[in-house]
């Protein structure tokens, strides 16, 4: 088991390096760079920029060095000092802008994931057992709709209905009276009262998808002979379900942990922007509108690295839940 975990962790390193290279390429994409931008800013504010000054800035940011050295400088700063560079759209270091916002983004994604499992797994099992019933068709139809309607569409419609029917402006994470206050019990409750909406909006698509996977897997398993054997041995229906097919059917859900996270971040980004939450998504968006790529680089790198960590986590979980993977009979994930 330990050997498996170590092997799995080692496999993640080339992935992280590849992601960092990809991210670095994205940062370099737009025409013009930080220094050109700063020089333009200085000139716009009436400061004359000499050739010398420009060269000094270039040296300061390492722009006079070859590409691979700049990559090492960039990744070195991130690893050693947690320095993701400077966001000229925000006029602040990227880390400063993104860090506390990232916390809310994670909270929303994590709560959505939990909501997804809590709802989707039992519902998926239920409709598989009741295949071809009215409930089954209803749920199947709803999952199709849930997968076709992105969260940010729903967010727009809900904002519209709340505003015109109830006169409430939905959006944000805090009510105005708590916005600038320090943390208190009241502020926490206020956060919860605003947090549930993005969590639910974000969870809908994943829930629909997970219900469908769970249903399909359960249907495959329920047909198998060991279920008949269990029934013949006189186990109750609940025992049959929980002891055998559910344990097999849950595997793709566990390995789905890996794709659920990037998926939640993708969908969450749009929901956050539409609802205008004080999270990482809208910060990224406003930076991108100004072609400020350092923010995007940090976002993609952090989310990518986290996905890889969660992939390791889900592989280990799989190995725990499925002895075939643990003993190397089946290649895991």
């Amino acid at each position: 088991m330990l050997a498996y975990i170590i092997r799995r962790i080692l496999r993640a390193f080339p992935q992280i390096i590849l992601i960092s290279i990809l991210t670095f390429i994205i940062i370099q994409l737009p025409p013009g760079d930080l220094v050109t931008q700063q020089i333009l800013n200085l000139q716009a504010s009436g400061v004359e920029v000499s050739q010398q000054h420009a060269e000094m800035l270039m040296r300061q940011y390492g722009l006079d060095r070859p590409m691979h050295e700049r990559y090492l400088l960039w990744i070195g700063n991130i690893v050693t000092r947690f320095d993701f560079g400077y966001s000229y759209a925000w006029q602040k270091p990227v880390a400063e802008v993104i860090m506390d916002r990232m916390g809310y983004t994670f909270a929303i994604a994590l709560l959505s994931a939990i909501l997804t499992w809590v709802v989707a797994i039992p519902v998926g099992i239920f409709v598989a057992v009741k295949q071809y019933s009215i409930t089954d068709y209803f749920v199947t139809f709803m999952t199709f709709i849930g997968m076709a309607v992105p969260g940010f569409f729903l967010a727009m419609v809900i904002m519209y209905v709340a505003l015109t029917r109830f006169g409430i402006r939905v959006g944000g994470l805090f009510s105005p009276e708590y916005m600038v206050q320090p943390w208190s019990w009241g502020k926490f409750l206020d956060l919860l009262s605003n947090l549930w909406l993005p969590v639910v909006l974000l969870g809908i698509g994943g829930t629909a998808g997970t219900i469908r996977t769970m249903r399909a897997m359960m249907l495959d398993e329920l047909r198998k002979l060991y279920v008949t054997v269990a029934r013949a041995k006189g186990l109750s229906e609940t025992q049959i379900l929980v002891r055998y097919p559910v344990r097999v059917a849950i595997n793709p859900i566990i390995s789905g942990l890996m794709w659920l996270l990037p998926w939640l971040f993708s969908g969450g980004l749009l929901v956050e922007i539409v609802l205008n939450l004080p999270t990482a998504g809208p910060a990224l968006y406003s930076a991108l509108l100004a072609q400020d790529m350092h923010m995007a680089g940090a976002y993609i790198l952090i989310v990518g690295a986290l996905t890889i960590v969660s992939a390791i986590f889900s592989d280990i979980l799989l190995a725990v839940s499925d002895p075939r993977i643990r003993f190397g009979a089946v290649e895991g994930a």
Binding site: P14, Q15, L18, I19, L22, I26, L29, P30, P31, M258, W259, P262, W263, F265, S266, G267, L269, L270, L284, Y285, L288, L289, Q291, M293, A296, G297, Y299, I300, V303, G304, T307, I308, A311
Partner: peptide
């Protein structure tokens, strides 16, 4: 295969946004 693996671990929409924003 490694490139495919990495692409599937990246969040789609942020990457799309970053690339689209980089277009002149």
């Amino acid at each position: 295969q490694r490139v495919i693996e990495v692409l599937t671990t990246l969040p789609q929409i942020p990457l799309w946004m970053a690339l689209a924003a980089a277009l002149p």
